[in-house]
Design a protein around this nucleic acid. Structure first.
Length: 293
DNA sequence: GCTATTTGACCACG
DNA sequence: CGTGGTCAAATAGC
């Protein structure tokens, strides 16, 4: 290790990241020695765990010789992947398909490029914007399905923003969100520091996936905007990822349908934004606690 | 009836 | 050819 550091041009960076990780671990240790209460101005144990994990991930990434972009979108995607095998993607094609005379345009798309995207990891899926879910896929080697969202104003305001949300495999309380495109709609244009300020108080239930199981009441928890007003958290029986996921997606504000999370402010929650396109960052100049890589 | 979600189908891309 | 992103019919909730 030390020999490596001597040779590595990013020695100082690695050292800094590792020291940071050690510091986070120390904080966590202190935190764990005390009762559960949250300290003013301090971070939670959850946050510290993630920070520690991230610090070491960064160090490892640098050591692997990829310090220019410490974590690329693809790397994070792979990091989210695990050992689990795909459950249904192949079976999708087992069924006989009847084509509909060329009218069906499903699947006619250009595969999205990684550039121009950015990533956020947080304990909540909520970002204050109005999203419409349009798909969900089980991802190969990934324990948790990936959910696809587009802006609710895609058609009325031609907003092209989309995002993909997936529970982080290493840390299932965290959501890995990849954003594509920027909001061009008016109603969702809120400062980023408001988008990322919801609390992480809703992890009362273990997140578990039962692929392809559809419960009759799964919709009870599926609507992003309705959830929050209902405030239901007790429907664990429909333990698809969705039901838990969408519970966590709910902001606590009753008016989030209009993307009004302003006023909520969680000072030091983990936000990570990674982009291969710096122009995207310029649009979020007031984004607090963004970490650039 | 309207709106949102679910999920199988479809197909571009690697 | 397998995977993953998107579409759209079916379904559910209000």
């Amino acid at each position: 290790m030390e020999e490596y550091l001597h040779e590595n041009p990013h020695k100082n960076l690695i050292k800094q990241v590792l020291i940071q990780g050690k510091d986070f671990a120390t904080q966590l240790q202190c935190l764990l020695r005390q009762p559960i209460e949250h300290h003013d101005g301090s971070v939670s144990a959850d946050e510290l765990v993630v920070k520690i994990w991230r610090s070491f991930t960064q160090a490892i990434t640098i050591m692997m010789g990829n310090s220019k972009s410490l974590v690329s979108t693809e790397e994070v995607d792979q990091a989210d992947s695990g050992d689990r095998k795909s459950t249904d993607s192949s079976s999708d094609q087992l069924r006989n398909k009847e084509k509909q005379g060329g009218k069906d345009r499903r699947g006619c798309y250009k595969r999205r490029k990684i550039s121009g995207s950015w990533i956020r990891e947080s304990a909540t899926m909520d970002d204050g914007c109005a999203w419409r879910k349009y798909g969900q896929k089980n991802i190969l080697n990934s324990k948790y399905p990936r959910c696809y969202f587009r802006c609710s104003h895609k058609y009325d305001q031609d907003c092209q923003a989309t995002k993909q949300v997936q529970i982080m495999q290493e840390y299932p309380k965290m959501y890995h969100t990849t954003y594509f495109g920027n909001h061009t709609c008016h109603s969702t244009k809120i400062p980023m520091h408001n988008m990322i300020t919801t609390s992480c108080s809703q992890f009362n239930h273990p997140i578990e996936v039962k692929p392809k199981i559809r419960s009759s009441n799964s919709h009870d928890n599926s609507t992003v905007k309705e959830e929050e007003s209902k405030g239901q958290n007790d429907d664990v029986s429909s333990s698809t990822m969705d039901s838990n996921l969408w519970e966590d997606f709910m902001p606590s504000s009753p008016s989030a349908r209009d993307s009004t999370l302003a006023g909520h402010h969680n000072s030091s929650f983990l936000k990570r934004v990674i982009s291969s396109d710096m122009e995207d960052f310029a649009k979020f100049g007031d984004f607090e606690d963004i970490e650039f890589y």
